[in-house]
Design a protein around this nucleic acid. Structure first.
Lengths: 145, 145
DNA sequence: ATCTATATTTATAATGATTATAAATTAAGA
DNA sequence: TCTTAATTTATAATCATTATAAATATAGAT
């Protein structure tokens, strides 16, 4: 958190209150929020905060490699991850939540270790797992008794 | 191709010329076409073909498990794969093409073999690789001589 | 601290993919 | 062939995202 702010400064990024708010909120988040989720939350404190600024700040952070935008979407909306590093994601089919799957790469995932497959140069891998999260699994087993 | 038409019939699907056209075109395709790519191609023969029908037919085929919609998009547009089975995809960063990566699962991909990870039940895995396709690699090396 | 040039934010409109709607057409079964 | 239900079509509506331009805030120099 401190680190990211420091790095932004180093990169000559103007640290406006709005940018700080977006950065802090996303850094603390664990649920891969969408633009409007970020916007709604920040608006409680900064009523004049506009969506356009959320979009532009996320774009900036993405370009600087500080965050990542996922390839899967929550109900058609882009979602963001404060961790730009390589890891996988599980989308829960019951509750729609997206969970980080820390995959201890590349030891467990040979795709990540390979530099080429089928004659293609591989630079990055994003895996999306579809299934049921622990919370929803628990609910299911509780129901059954 | 014959199979899919037969299965549609078995499922009581009305086989209109429009549905046949979409199904045939997608079945023959190798480049994960978008809705408008499918639409433009079919319109050459059926000038009255509407996009709405393309959307509805794709939705139908998807629900019947005959095709799949990818989680990654070409310039913001959904793209479709005539093969509903589990396989991975590589998005070429140079030309934007999406290639199938036949991964001979699950021998090469332990994620596919696992039924649970981090307490999550895993039902399906989609991996998206980002890199350079063989064609673009060749162009690069040709340039360098 | 003040001024000035530049960058950022904001509100608004524009874009573009997808979905909804309702009338027109077509298919299926009697 | 006739009738009913399903499908297609054209059109409008929706919704996320991007573009625009005026208003505001920032940074650096004085």
């Amino acid at each position: 958190m401190k680190d990211i702010i420091a790095r932004l400064k180093e990169n000559g990024v103007t640290l406006t209150p709005q940018r700080m708010a977006v950065t802090e909120f996303l850094s603390r988040s664990r649920n891969h929020p969408t633009v409007d989720e970020i916007h709604r939350n920040i608006q409680r404190r900064y009523p004049t905060m506009s969506v356009a600024t959320v979009y532009s700040t996320l774009k900036l952070l993405k370009e600087l490699g500080e965050i990542q935008e996922l390839s899967i979407r929550k109900r058609g909306k882009a979602c963001f991850d404060p961790n730009p590093g390589l890891h996988h994601h599980l989308l829960c089919r019951k509750c729609g939540k997206i969970l980080d799957i820390d995959f201890n790469h590349p030891s467990n995932c040979p795709i990540m270790a390979k530099e080429s497959i089928d004659g293609c140069k591989v630079e990055e891998v994003q895996a999306y797992l579809y299934g049921i999260c622990p919370e929803c699994l628990k609910k299911e087993s509780d129901k059954k008794g």
